[in-house]
């Protein structure tokens, strides 16, 4: 066991997989000499050399497009987009190609790439450095979208993502990068993609979320406990494929659902979770399912950023409303 934060954990996974498999390569802006602007790729250039750890030109579509070619050739590229807000130029490559080559080629080709990006707000960043549009990615058929919220999950899910034969977008909640440490097993650690985790068991209401919303949901659960409300917290860990079973098992137990999403409200992944619950678990529900989300505005500059993200207060109030409904 080693004490690690999320940055250490992703870095550990990259080191391990690069040692294990020569086909694993790292590419992106500032991932080599500078070891990533958040230091996630620390020590990799030094250990594995420029042939496998490569600073690229500043071109997001190019980074993803070239990674697709590497993947088609049989390499396992782990590419980085420095901030999710800058991923848009690469969306064409993700949706037109990375997600489609297996299908287009009748299963003859595949793109075993991982696209890493720090995402989300709460760190007083510049404009375009706090976005979370994971719902857009989950909407693209053929991509897996993985979002860990703990160091242990970050390591285990990164290892699984690199080994996955299909393209995985791996989003790292930067608010949590160095927020806390956790004992993480040394060496091999595999967490399955597509499996949610019940962080905290409870009886009265189910909270579902991912990324930087997970610790907020846990804090909200602690507050609610003081009011004798027993909250179950589910960390999705992967939004596509969606672990409907874990969420619906929980809904059947508690009868209430609150989805907490940092991203804008309209068309977000929270809507999908609620649609499925309404579709399949309507009779288990004692109250209408609710969302606590960001607003349908561009992520604001940092004087207003705390208002833009669901906070513990808002989450607790929604919990009360659902209990009292």
């Amino acid at each position: 066991m080693s004490e690690m934060n999320i940055v250490d954990a992703v870095n550990d996974a990259l080191h391990l997989e690069m040692e294990k498999d020569e086909d694993v390569m790292i590419l992106g802006e500032d991932v080599g000499e500078n070891e990533g602007v958040f230091r996630v790729t620390e020590g990799l250039l030094e250990k594995f050399g420029e042939e496998r750890v490569r600073d690229t030109p500043l071109a997001e579509s190019g980074i993803v497009g070239v990674s697709i070619g590497l993947g088609l050739y049989g390499m396992k590229p782990v590419a980085e987009i420095q901030f999710m807000g800058f991923m848009w130029p690469a969306l064409d490559q993700l949706s037109s190609h990375a997600s489609r080559y297996r299908n287009r080629s009748q299963g003859q080709l595949n793109v075993p790439m991982v696209l890493r990006a720090p995402y989300g707000g709460g760190v007083k960043a510049l404009e375009h450095h706090s976005e979370s549009f994971e719902s857009v990615l989950a909407h693209i058929p053929g991509l897996k979208v993985v979002i860990p919220s703990t160091p242990k999950d970050a390591k285990g899910l990164m290892i699984s993502s690199i080994r996955d034969p299909d393209p995985v977008v791996f989003l790292e909640p930067k608010k949590l990068y160095r927020a806390f440490k956790q004992d993480v097993p040394d060496g091999e650690l595999v967490e399955e993609i597509g499996e949610a985790r019940v962080v905290k068991e409870g009886e009265d209401i189910t909270l579902v979320g991912w990324g930087a919303m997970v610790p907020k949901m846990v804090k909200a659960a602690d507050h609610a406990a003081k009011e004798n409300i027993s909250v179950e917290v589910v960390d999705l860990r992967t939004i596509y494929p969606y672990d409907e079973e874990t969420v619906h098992d929980s809904i059947r137990k508690t009868g209430r659902l609150l989805v907490v999403q940092e991203a804008h409200r309209t068309g977000g992944f929270a809507s999908e979770i609620i649609a499925r619950a309404a579709d399949k678990e309507l009779l288990s529900l004692k109250a209408p399912p609710k969302r606590s989300t960001g607003f349908d505005v561009p992520f604001p500059l940092y004087k207003m950023e705390d208002w833009a993200i669901p906070d513990v207060d808002r989450i607790v109030k929604k919990i009360r409303r659902l209990i009292e409904w």
């Binding site: 390569m25 042939e51 496998r52 579509s61 190019g62 993803v64 497009g65 070239v66 990674s67 697709i68 070619g69 590497l70 993947g71 088609l72 050739y73 049989g74 390499m75 590229p77 064409d92 490559q93 037109s96 190609h97 080559y101 287009r104 080629s105 080709l109």
Partner: peptide, 25 residues
């Protein structure tokens, strides 16, 4: 051969990735 790519120019970076793979190989 890769399959047909319809969105104009989007296959060009794939060629570069393949060529990089060849070089590494």
């Amino acid at each position: 051969n890769l399959p047909i790519a319809v969105p104009v120019s989007t296959q060009i970076p794939h060629a570069v990735g393949l060529a990089w793979g060849i070089k590494r190989d």
